Amino acid sequence: MRSRPPHPRLPRRQHRDRGQVAVEYLGFLPVLLIVGLAGIQLGAVAYAAEQAGTAARAGARAASLQQDVGAACASAVSSGIHVSCATSGGGDSVTVTATVHIPEIMWKDLGNATKSATMPVDH
Rank of each mutant, 00 (worst) to 15 (best):
G91D: 08
D68T: 10
V31F: 11
I34V: 13
C73Y: 11
R57M: 14
T87W: 02
Q67E: 15
Y47A: 06
I40G: 10
S88Q: 11
L32M: 15
A60P: 13
L37G: 02
A62R: 04
A58M: 02
T97L: 03
A72L: 02
Q41R: 13
R61N: 15
G91S: 10
A22D: 11
S88K: 05
G59K: 12
H82E: 14
L42N: 15
G27A: 08
T99W: 05
V94S: 08
A60W: 04
A56Y: 04
V45F: 07
S79Q: 09
D68W: 03
S84Q: 14
H82N: 13
R61C: 04
A98V: 12
A72C: 04
Q51A: 14
G90T: 06
S78C: 02
E50M: 04
G80M: 11
G43P: 12
D68I: 08
V35R: 01
C85V: 01
G27F: 05
V45S: 08
V77F: 08
A49N: 05
D92C: 02
A71D: 02
G89H: 09
L29I: 12
L65Q: 13
A56S: 10
E24C: 03
Q67R: 01
T95V: 12
G43V: 06
D92H: 08
G89D: 11
Q67L: 15
A38T: 13
A56T: 14
G70D: 13
C73P: 01
S88A: 13
R57I: 14
D68P: 01
S84K: 00
L26C: 09
A86Q: 07
C73L: 09
